[in-house]
Design a protein around this nucleic acid. Sequence first.
DNA 1: CATTGTGAACTCATTCACAGCG
DNA 2: CGCTGTGAATGAGTTCACAATG
Lengths: 213, 213
Amino acid sequence: MPKTIKIPKATITRLSIYYRQLELLEFDGYRMVSSDKLAWLCQVSPAQVRKDLGYFGEFGVRGVGYDVIDLQAHIKKILTVNRDWNFGIAGIGNLGSALLRHGNFTARGFKCVAVFDNDPNKIGMVMSSGLKIKDIRELNKAVEELDIEIGIITTPPSAAQGAADLFLDAHVNAILNFSPTRISVPDCCLVENIDFTIRLDILTYRLHHEIGL
Amino acid sequence: MPKTIKIPKATITRLSIYYRQLELLEFDGYRMVSSDKLAWLCQVSPAQVRKDLGYFGEFGVRGVGYDVIDLQAHIKKILTVNRDWNFGIAGIGNLGSALLRHGNFTARGFKCVAVFDNDPNKIGMVMSSGLKIKDIRELNKAVEELDIEIGIITTPPSAAQGAADLFLDAHVNAILNFSPTRISVPDCCLVENIDFTIRLDILTYRLHHEIGL
DNA sequence: CATTGTGAACTCATTCACAGCG
DNA sequence: CGCTGTGAATGAGTTCACAATG
């Protein structure tokens, strides 16, 4: 039962992590798992696991734990990954191509149905997945025809905002932005950023300040 | 002057973002910038910018703002990116290759000096960067010879912990983990995770719960 | 006088501790 | 008895509001 209490964003992140561990537990033949064990596997505290799950319902059995299969189903529903999602990629450079061939997405119901670029030399090329690279000017049309709900941006930073605007015009309201730029969008559109360089900067900061390197 | 006050991890993330915006501001010819303007560009609050910088010193001029060049230098020093860092990549699949060819790293002083794989068909292959793929069993030796300080893991999940252990044996104490698994390491080793699927899960969760899709 | 720097107030998130229950 | 579920306590992070100042 979804309560009207505010749910920490970090809780959602962890649910995704719990889910993956539950898949592994199921594969290993486990039928039940305690918050202690799941917590240990996910490198969080047991109380955190119980609190996170508690936001969404009572999924466990006191004295026993959580049913591995059952809990997976609950989390899938919470994350809304209990159905397929179509996405399109704008910018087919090194990273874009790598994502297209990335196996993890399709296994989880995320399906790339179109790829776009503005480079005339690339437009029309057929990728290993069988998708033909479309002119980015066809993005609007393709979104409607192919029912694209998520836009992935893997363009150079200078083209990122333009790509975002095209997705916006086409009424895509979720963007996964891999370019190292903050794109600006109205409130109706959600953005998640993945920026490799920031993570490297954090590592070097910590190496110096925590380890003393 | 570094104080002994606890600095939020999010502050470090933002410093990296400020830095990138400062580069752009410099490129655009700005000499000074206010916390208001920088905050707007980075999509945070002005108070946040000032507080973040305040942890590390007094870099601004009251009534005027921050010197664009000067502040860059300060942040570089804080993040310890005022020197080069060598890294190695374990797992040269789609993602590993894409990272190797990724331009953003070298521009910022992060240099890939070795790539490793365990696939006999790949070992010995020469990449476009000129690097030859090494047998992952040579990792230990290569770390010492090439002075690798950061290990990047782009293996399949099942091989991630093994790769992490090899980096650990070689006394690498910073790992950037792209595999969708939590790897376990002792306290002397720092890990940052980048997990695409988690970010997609967050998007679909938010699409459903915030937008109502 | 515009803008920084910062303690204090507040909001958000995690942990504790134990009641509740199979 | 063991483990979940959860209010209360603690801790972390952000925003406010204004004194300090070039």
